[in-house]
Design a protein around this nucleic acid. Structure first.
Lengths: 338, 338
DNA sequence: TTGTAGGCGTTATCAG
DNA sequence: CTGATAACGCCTACAA
């Protein structure tokens, strides 16, 4: 068997160059158990000389592992790409993957694609496991993934909430904290700008806000739906001002939406926080740069995603999925807006 | 051969279930050439019933294609993850990949990892091609990739500039446009905050700025190096103010750095644009949200990356790499800061 | 410690 | 149009 020049070197080439058999070469390359020092050295040398890299498809075919995991973002809208949330997610996965030699396959939902596409890919054996972030009701990912044994960890409580392991922040507590701060400040006519209501995080933040208002006997009617974007926040703020011109406190369920809200309040000549107090959610780097500096609820995204990835790695290593979800606590970050 | 319950269904299972041979099943699944309607229907049905998805490793082993491409970000620093630039890049790739069924493998450099890691992965046959963004001098990616025939397209002029196809924006022209605007405004004591000087984009923007100053016989000494981050921009601005307290115009080579510069100017009581005019670079969504609204140079990142991905797809389809780099034109975007 | 042999799931070739 | 059969490159008992 002669080495064809130009083609990628194969294990056979390495073995031949090192003067050993294929199996010895293979053992030497994978950890070097039961390999004599001479053989090891010869193989190492041949690998370096030839620039050999194992063919992952072939390896994967027999080991049934791919050494890569998927990060699934089932958000068809392109807006996710400029959301600091995604940055946090990437950061979290990247942190947790440091030290392993797992690779990251980024699975972004594409606008026009049929619903089962992502699930089918995940099942096709190209990844060993998956992290799912930014899950929506209706993306059908959950039932489809439950059907087969691919290890999956969700970031954020899944809708069906069956038995999928997940990591989340206590969004309800976050919503409560935001509302409480506004109440304690003396605000009595509170509004909220929610996130998309097909996402658990948005629902939970809203629920928390509402709880506190109910406790205090305050009306919880000034509600406008946003979509976690600046423009959506601005539109929602306009709607609130139209329907409830006298509000004195706003909880926006994301900092991006809070940014939009601040713009609109400024347009309308409302001073923040004197006329209207504003509080956001996320604290992913923008809050401290707004003017006034945004008071917000810290969402430990990086930590959440790292934890989720850690759990996934455990499962890949043979560990059982955790029985209980891991829930992190949000906390209030002081700013000048509330 | 009996189907083992729990294991992923294989082509054999499908064939058996459909009452045809493996070959026929395979053909039916891949486009259906030379397959009778009945056979096709039987196979389709079996696929659906069994929830069959082809094993990509096995397929890839024989076709020598993986149907996935890599997006390589050889930026070891975690700061890249929150840079809007990355959002633009993802958006560009994602746009260009819509309609294909290629998957995206995100290869982020990790802090501690040895230099050849990325190149080795790319050579291991797990992807059909790669887009390289945010290339640094010294990441050694270029020489390593030149050694083997993996189709690669760079976003941004590579350092060695050998024969790697790339797409870029004319950063020099952008630097010139920024400087010209400041000069035309009447500024005569100009400063610049550069990007990291191990990146071609930063060098080119700086070169353009300098050209215009030279043409006008203005001193080009107020230069501070930043790192494309807000904090880096702030630090650089402080340095400039210390060394050249009388400057009246600043070109920051990225909007993030411009944001930091604006903060520092405000701290120092300098009015923008009255006392000091400021102009940024990128226009990736932050400029319009700063106060004052930042005048900046538009960097068509999404378009660049889409073009690069398109070129890569051509190459994967058998096309020759383009002889000349594609260079897009930047343009000035009006704001209130210059 | 080493090598031989078999098979992972798929596609491609080539007779029927 | 169909179905044996031979790779693809690698890992891993098992036997030496």
């Amino acid at each position: 068997m002669t080495t064809v020049h130009g083609a990628a070197p194969t294990l056979d080439d390495v073995a031949e160059a090192a003067g050993v058999s294929r199996s010895t070469a293979s053992r030497a390359i994978n950890g070097g158990e039961r390999v004599s020092p001479e053989a090891q050295a010869a193989v190492d040398d041949a690998v370096a000389r030839l620039g050999y890299a194992p063919n992952r498809a072939a390896r994967s075919l027999v080991t049934r592992r791919t050494d890569s995991i998927a990060l699934v973002v089932p958000e068809p809208d392109a807006k996710i790409l400029t959301d600091p949330f995604l940055g946090g997610v990437l950061r979290g996965v990247s942190d947790a993957l440091a030290g392993t030699d797992l690779q990251l396959v980024l699975l972004l939902a594409r606008p026009g694609e049929q619903p089962g596409h992502l699930a089918r890919y995940l099942r096709s054996g190209h990844v060993d496991g998956a992290i799912v972030a930014s899950h929506h009701r209706g993306d059908q990912l959950e039932p489809q993934l439950a059907r087969d044994p691919l290890p999956v960890v969700f970031v954020g409580r899944p809708f069906e909430g069956g038995s999928v392991p997940y990591v989340d922040v206590d969004n309800t507590a976050g919503g409560r904290a935001a509302a409480r701060r506004l109440v304690e400040r003396g605000c009595r006519r509170l509004a909220t700008i929610t996130g998309p209501l097909d996402m658990p995080a948005a629902l939970d933040r809203f629920a928390g806000w509402r709880q506190v208002l109910d406790e205090h006997g305050l009306p919880a009617e000034a509600v406008a739906n946003g979509d976690f974007t600046i423009d959506g926040g601005a539109a929602a703020m306009r709607q609130v001002l139209t329907e409830h011109p006298d509000i004195d406190g706003v909880f926006a369920a994301s900092d991006l939406m809070a940014a939009g809200a601040l713009d609109v309040l400024r347009e309308h000549g409302r001073r923040v926080p004197q006329d209207v107090a504003v509080i956001g959610f996320d604290d992913l780097g923008m809050a401290e740069r707004m003017s006034p500096r945004l008071t917000t609820v810290h969402n430990p995204v990086v930590q959440m995603v790292s934890a989720a990835t850690g759990t996934l790695l455990d499962m890949l290593g043979g560990g059982r999925p955790p029985l209980k979800p891991q829930v992190l606590e949000p906390y209030l970050v002081e700013g000048d807006s509330a």
